[in-house]
Design a protein around this nucleic acid. Sequence first.
DNA 1: AAACTCACTTTGTGATCACAAACAGCAACT
DNA 2: AGTTGCTGTTTGTGATCACAAAGTGAGTTT
Lengths: 235, 235
Amino acid sequence: MDKKSPIKITLTERDDSVTITQWVYRTLRNAVMYGEILPGRALTIRELAGILDVSPMPVREALRQLAAENALEIQGNRRVMVPRMTAMKFNELCEARIAIESHAAARALPYIDTPCLQRLRDLDKRIDDAQEQGDLEQISILNQNFHRALYTANPHQVTLPLIESLWLQLGPFMRLATSKLDEHYLVDRHNEAMAAIEKKDAFALQLAISADIREGIAFAGTPELLHSFIEQSGQ
Amino acid sequence: MDKKSPIKITLTERDDSVTITQWVYRTLRNAVMYGEILPGRALTIRELAGILDVSPMPVREALRQLAAENALEIQGNRRVMVPRMTAMKFNELCEARIAIESHAAARALPYIDTPCLQRLRDLDKRIDDAQEQGDLEQISILNQNFHRALYTANPHQVTLPLIESLWLQLGPFMRLATSKLDEHYLVDRHNEAMAAIEKKDAFALQLAISADIREGIAFAGTPELLHSFIEQSGQ
DNA sequence: AAACTCACTTTGTGATCACAAACAGCAACT
DNA sequence: AGTTGCTGTTTGTGATCACAAAGTGAGTTT
């Protein structure tokens, strides 16, 4: 039946308070973010509709939305797939993250009040816990929450959607990276970030955020990981 | 028939080589960008379908795509509209533009070759011409093309979609700004940018781009323009 | 054996329909 | 008079259908 490699997508319970399209969007977004769909694998509306047990319509809408966020790529022949990656593009995405996120952090700094600071401290602690237990999945999720909580302190935030788009594009390949994370000892840059926040030192905060991002993917520059990009993403 | 203010959308000829959805998307995108749709005005699928003389389906897809790019906002009650603006949000959008675009410019600099440089010079000259003739519409379009041409010199470009999203969000309100542009004399920062490019001076290029963006919206800080935000965007 | 042709299948696009939630207008009540 | 409750209408969502374009594979030709 399936000529191509079968797609396995993690399904979550559907809440009746959200539309089917939203649930499909969320499900596919997670599947992309966590690398469950191989880059270059052609996706068809009807196939996904079958897997998710919904009609083609919500899938159509969700795919278009994900494509608009650069999580998916629509080829000229109107085939949809997770974009392939190259080492150069990976590097550009990382540098873009650093530029935008350090900007967002500095812009959020003046708005961080006591309850927000408490939330950040809580997340920081939970990251430390997860790191001791070596729970890579949890570290990754909490790390995202930490960044999100920081940037959203700014009530006039406009960059978060852009940042999330970058996360989505890097997501499938960060999975490759984090699988080798345990071999490395990571300096906890969040503590440095927390210190900068408490001192209201924007420049130090930018340095800490930049370092956090850069170290999270530093070992992506090793030859074997670059090779796995080609392997996963090549034709 | 129309209880609300009627919507006037500039229609272009539809090329049969593009899908109806793409044409609708392009048309609505231009309408948003050039401020033809008032912020806060509720948009309905069927109304737009009637105006554009297409079935509701392509409109549905186009609206969802524009919403994903933050050009439109879907409220909880699933009503769609051009987002309202506030002075603070406007400021954040401008600062985000400066941060991301100066980054994109610096990243593109190493890739600028002779033909690309020629294209930029050509655009620069045409902007000068348009400025002498006081053709504000043309200046705005050419200015965008200049920035786009610069950033896309980088073949591994990943920030342009993010930048275009910011342009889209600022678009409706830049129209307000440019209508007062003739009262101001603008230093041509593009000449400075060209000089920096030729000298391969990344820092000078970033300064020129930042200044160009900042001056393009500097007078947005005047009280009367802020007031027109409230007027246009207020409930 | 490699390349082309042609019939058959799959797939995205767009139209139409059914339905439940949201909305608007008006009447009744406090 | 301002608020609440009800009813008819509008609107987004999702399902289904028709169709043309793209893809696929076997059989033929050079």
